[in-house]
Design a protein around this nucleic acid. Structure first.
Lengths: 347, 347
DNA sequence: GTCGGGTCGGCAAGCGTTTGCGAGGTGACC
DNA sequence: GGTCACCTCGCAAACGCTTGCCGACCCGAC
């Protein structure tokens, strides 16, 4: 008989097991297991069951999920792979995922790729090692497709937020092309005929879609798109600033409107414009993407395409839960909407 | 011999185990275990070791962390309990925790309490069931103390972000009193002599500390503090709006400056002021707390006390890692700093 | 040739559960 | 009174890994 460790104050105490409860009640551990398992509880005499429950409570018994996981092959955890938790764009998605995972009694296990393929692979490996019941990939880039599909043979993988073109993995995404089109049409309606776009990294499908849909719509509507030679290496403030600055330095003939591939880049661009004493929207109209939490409150309030972050997260979580419950489930594609504020106006 | 499942496309395949690798190489599983474990690899012949490594690679072997966890009692996971992932204040903390946990090869397991004690207790239970190696509590309220201390007898608990007064658990916090004092002194220097504060829920220690330190400093400096009868039930935008509105309706004699217990409340207050055609900072100065990501860009740029969120998260993660590595570690208390922008000005 | 010591690797127990199988007991029914 | 069904519960295997212990074998020293 193992001696229970002394309870010196602050000292760790080991938790009671099924055996402990069994000994307490005077039954076999398997009986305790059954008594405590709602779906098996019918197999045990109500009286013993009650005795077991009481003893369990008295001893402070908690099921050992690790042992259960080993036995059952399920850990009730879901891996969530994000690019960068510091990015305001992903946290509402995580929030959504967490919320709907909770309904299935799952807990998210989170890691960040820093947008590096190496790290992505390592994290995926790690998660499979941990035997997560599924993984939600929020950080997929084109180059990650293979490892994701390999992983999907081991555990269900759902791709969310960033689409993975050419893959048959279940996806929860939104219509980037539609959003970019909205942006272009909005600028067209305001009379802009000479515009530019500040592009994010094109191996992230969202930006690729936005870029081509925006260009195409411009062509259709007869808008001149001034070419920005560089592409943002990451969709962040600094890159927006850099690209805008480059554009301003190169070209004395500034476009009347700029479409930034996301809000952070738009904010960076805004700073670059201000530095040049160009004001938004008087001198140039500026439109972003995502509608991050504070965009209504910045100066000027940013016109932007609303990306339904939380909904994407919720849907991704739901899809996982449904799938794990054995239900059929289909891809999800949500629609963006245009939020017109004060950073755009007629020429 | 168990038949390996067919590989129909899209079908799940079970992962190879130590036994599989052992069979492949023709050695005993324990040898494989040793060969693959860096700290035990010296115990096995370099040749067999190489053979094992190669076979493991070929088969795509991944250690089964659940089994290992059952055996070793460590899961390499750390529970992180937040109040609300939708809150801009917590995500940088989580970001920090995640980053420093990574250095110890831990992964965070995250859940949200929604600031409800019931949920807090349930989540804590759940995490102990999962045998997380430690828990980081970001969501502690006064009423959660007992369950946290109980939990701490089972697994190391570190309290971060929200202090837990009267508890001897390791804490990573910041000096709320100092921050509130800075705010009061700043307003005093600007000549304000009649101010108000918009308080957050006082069973969250941060707000309690801010409230009393602010009042005390006002008294010391001879500033009149106009009483706001109500207290925010949650530290959010809506509550800031509500409190400010109540203040404006009750009192025709508006204070010249307002200290909001956090930025979100400040923003709510700002909206209420605008509604009354009162402008900031011309009519009333406004000061917030936390310095959320976008506060430099809102209109007007918000003067606020900078809360070192990411650093708090980093420190909390480091403390956990150190503790789990058996090192001694002390409480951490970081200092706030005042960020003067344009929402405050001389009377 | 024997023996001591060192190296390598097999054996098996054990971590805490779940679960199929079957033993034992009880009651009903013929 | 015997058979059978049913209820309750114990037994033991299994999940995949780690590790203490011990046996086998080899080498050099005496």
């Amino acid at each position: 008989m193992r001696a229970r460790p002394q309870r010196k104050d602050g000292d760790q105490v080991s938790m009671p097991t099924l055996d402990d409860v069994a000994r307490e009640v005077g039954v076999h551990p398997s009986t305790v297991s059954r008594a405590l398992n709602p779906s098996k509880a019918g197999l045990v005499n109500p009286e013993t069951r009650q005795a077991v429950e009481e003893a369990a409570r008295r001893l402070g018994y908690r099921p050992h999920m690790v042992a259960r996981g080993l036995q059952s092959g399920r850990t009730a955890t879901v891996g969530v792979i994000a690019a960068d938790l510091g990015n305001q764009f992903v946290t509402p998605i995580i929030h959504g995922v967490t919320a709907s995972l909770e309904l299935g009694e799952f807990m998210p296990v989170i890691a960040e790729t820093q947008d590096e393929h190496e790290r992505f692979a390592r994290i995926l490996d790690h998660m499979l090692s941990r035997r997560v019941d599924a993984v939600v990939a929020l950080a997929a880039r084109a180059g990650d497709r293979q490892i994701l599909e390999d992983a999907a043979r081991i555990a269900p993988v759902v791709v969310a937020a960033r689409p993975l073109p050419g893959s048959r993995l279940p996806q929860v995404v939104h219509d980037d092309a539609a959003g970019a089109r909205m942006a272009a049409e909005h600028l067209h309606e305001l009379g802009h005929r000479r515009v530019a776009q500040l592009r994010g990294p094109l191996d992230v499908a969202n930006f690729e879609h936005r870029a081509s849909a925006f260009s195409e719509t411009c062509r259709e509507l007869g808008i001149e798109e001034v070419e920005v030679p560089e592409i943002g290496s990451r969709p962040i403030y600094d890159e927006g600033y850099r690209l805008m600055k480059a554009l301003l330095e190169r070209d004395t003939d500034v476009p009347t409107a700029v479409f930034a591939h996301n809000d952070l880049m738009a904010l960076g661009a805004l700073a670059a414009l201000k530095e040049r004493d160009l004001s938004v929207p008087e001198d140039v109209s500026l439109i972003g993407y995502n509608d991050l939490p504070m965009m209504a409150l910045v100066d000027p309030p940013l016109t932007t395409v609303r990306y339904p972050s939380r909904e994407i997260g919720l849907a991704a979580g739901e899809l996982v839960v449904a799938h794990l419950a054995g239900e059929e489930s289909a891809d999800v594609c949500l629609q963006p909407s245009l939020v017109v504020r004060r950073s755009t106006r007629p020429v």
